[in-house]
Amino acid sequence: MRAINVLIYFLICFATWLLLTHNLGWQNLVAGSVISLLTTLVFSRYFNFDVTKMINPVRWFWMIIYIIYFIWQCVKANFDVAYRVLHPAMPIKPGIVRVNLTLQGSLARTILANSITMTPGTIAVDIIDDILYVHWIYVRYLDHDRYAYRISGKFERILKKIFE
């Protein structure tokens, strides 16, 4: 399994090199393969994610849905910030709340935290064990179940379908 991981990371690095340099001469190919090999050998031990899960096409379908939903939330977040900044009285009521996580795996949690940073009004502060701390610019409720559904409910449901 580890050999397959290293091979796939090497192919991703090499494809990125080819797309960035946009040149198919043999010197460029040799330099790109050497640099990709070095990068893979140094950094591949930090990625302990099972790549063979990603062969299933159902996961790719849910990933496309996730990207579309994420872009829609991102545009909504920007109009939300514009409304709060341009309003003369600045309707903000900030606070840091805790959200219980049911998602496992470090890669899935990283993507969830990065998505929460770009969605309306929230930004991720820290993860300790199974609790995610979120800074919210307008705290609507103090009841855990309602705000947890509003902040991370749909993201977590789609990410479970992708990674589990």
């Binding site: 910030v81 770009m118 930004i123 800074h135």
Partner: peptide, 24 residues
């Protein structure tokens, strides 16, 4: 809008929030 939020909002947490989203 992001830079306006950087100027107007009251503390560092809110400034970081508006500026990161909008400018990115």
């Amino acid at each position: 809008f992001g830079c306006l939020g950087l100027i107007r909002l009251p503390d560092i947490y809110n400034r970081l929030q508006s500026a990161t989203k909008c400018v990115t």
